[in-house]
């Protein structure tokens, strides 16, 4: 889902950059007021872990393999979409600048999709679904939706950029990520969530960090 350089016109890339910077500003503020800014190092090391996690191949039926994004997992476990944003943004910047995974001018748009949409959908999906369908299914659906909606956004953005037609893009990106998201993100996040709950239940706050101050 990493959009490379040259697929998004510069003026559109600037818009996504501005959105990313605004959310970034609020994330830093969140880290300062709610998380205790000094805890920022913890998120930084966690980002290194997520980086390695993204390199793990996950088998998908029919012979392809996918990998995890992890935004939903971080947002749900730490208890804030801002945490997901900070961790994923760090990962995306390093991927763009050093590995060429996702473009440099397209960094804003990739942050928009994989750090903003994924984290917020993952976190609020979980929070809103939990009372309705109980905890574990909520993790699964939220994690799946975090990838699926990011892929849909990606298809819409590419069509806005005039690079790929909308219907075809929705079909390819949507279908592919609907399947990959179910296994790679949904199932894995659910198993991971349960395992973390078993080993370090203290980590999972369940409550929104800083919602009361």
């Amino acid at each position: 889902m990493h959009i490379p350089d040259g697929f998004i016109p510069l003026w559109q890339a600037v818009i996504y950059y501005i959105i990313a910077i605004i959310v970034g500003f609020y994330s830093i503020r969140w880290a300062r007021t709610s998380l205790d800014e000094r805890k920022v190092p913890l998120l930084a090391v966690l980002a290194a872990g997520i980086f390695a996690i993204q390199a793990m191949n996950i088998p998908i039926p029919w012979g392809t393999s996918g990998h995890m994004v992890g935004a939903a997992l971080v947002a749900i476990v730490i208890g804030s979409p801002f945490a997901g944003f900070l961790v994923l943004t760090t990962v995306l910047i390093i991927q763009a600048l050093f590995f060429g995974d996702g473009g440099v001018t397209a960094l804003g748009i990739n942050i928009f999709n994989m750090a903003i949409i994924s984290s917020w959908v993952g976190f609020y999906g979980f929070k809103w679904l939990k009372p309705v369908i109980s905890e574990v299914p909520a993790v699964f659906v939220a994690a799946w939706a975090s990838i699926f909606l990011a892929a849909i956004a990606c298809a819409i953005e590419l069509s806005l950029a005039g690079t790929f037609p909308l219907t075809l893009g929705l079909y390819f990106m949507g279908l592919y990520h609907a399947v990959i998201g179910m296994v790679g993100e949904g199932l894995i996040t659910t198993i991971a969530f349960l395992a973390i709950k078993g080993v370090r239940p203290d980590l999972i706050s369940g409550e929104e960090v800083g919602s009361h101050g």
């Binding site: 966690l46 390695a52 996690i53 793990m56 995890m68 476990v77």
Partner: peptide, 11 residues
């Protein structure tokens, strides 16, 4: 589980 391992270790 491997992913959980990496997640917890990095945390």
């Amino acid at each position: 589980y491997t992913i959980v391992m990496l997640f917890l270790r990095s945390y």
